[in-house]
Amino acid sequence: MNSAMNKPGKTDENSVISIRNLRKSFGDLHVLQGIDLDVKQGENIAVLGRSGTGKSVLIKIIVGLLKPDSGSVVVLGQDVEQLSAKEMDTFRQKVGFSFQSSALYDSMSIRENLEFPLVRNVRNLSRADVDKAVEKALDDVGLSQTINQMPSELSGGQRKRIGIARTLILNPEIMLYDEPTSGLDPITSIEINNLINEVRERINATSIIITHDLTCAKTTSDRVAMLLDGKFERVGTFDDVFADPDERVKQFYNYNFVN
């Protein structure tokens, strides 16, 4: 139930994502202080923790947007730190990243936003192929009607969905969700949670969901990992983790479900 499930030192060969003794600091702020984590093929894991504890930093390191101070991150059998620029581009096609702010390109229409990763990564695609892929991606998130709109014309929930559609267009093997329900109303949050589950069923992707929304963690993940003081102090099923008498874990649960 705790971090002993992730054996420190040696990477697990059956894992799609294997993290060992990962450390990252920003000046005097030591956010990650020796993280160990293994995520299996097709598994959804939610990373919980208070704001500013380094949850987003973790997935940014996984996708190579940030460099760790020490430790190793092996994803799909590749050590992320050792990848050349070209290898990193190929690697990133297999890893979808849904940003907290959706990160849709403001100056491009929804169609252009979805086309962007496709036309830059897949060669010899005809116009018809691109159109078909864009229409399918939008259809999958139930927003076909927005194809010619600009991001500024969409609601927060729609922007999140389009952000997810843009990452799905390359059929990634791994999905990283950064706060997928933050800033959304409860109904839209449920829709996003359902979408995360649909994505898992549809493409059998392995996912890491960064959140502090316990409903999201409970409904979308097989396991949750609780980030406390820079380490995964608790890793296990949702019910196991929150059965723990640790006051810090209880506080987190009470804030979400009791208050």
């Binding site: 940014k60 996708v63 947007l65 581009d89 190929t90 990133r92 096609q93 890893v95 990243f97 940003f99 907290q100 702010s101 990160a103 849709l104 390109y105 403001d106 962007f116 990763p117 830059r120 990564n121 843009r166």
Partner: peptide, 17 residues
């Protein structure tokens, strides 16, 4: 600046661009 603040530059990077 706005693209930087709203993570659009990061999004471009993870899109292989």
């Amino acid at each position: 600046g706005s693209m930087n603040v709203t993570e659009q530059i990061d999004a471009m990077e993870v899109s292989g661009t």
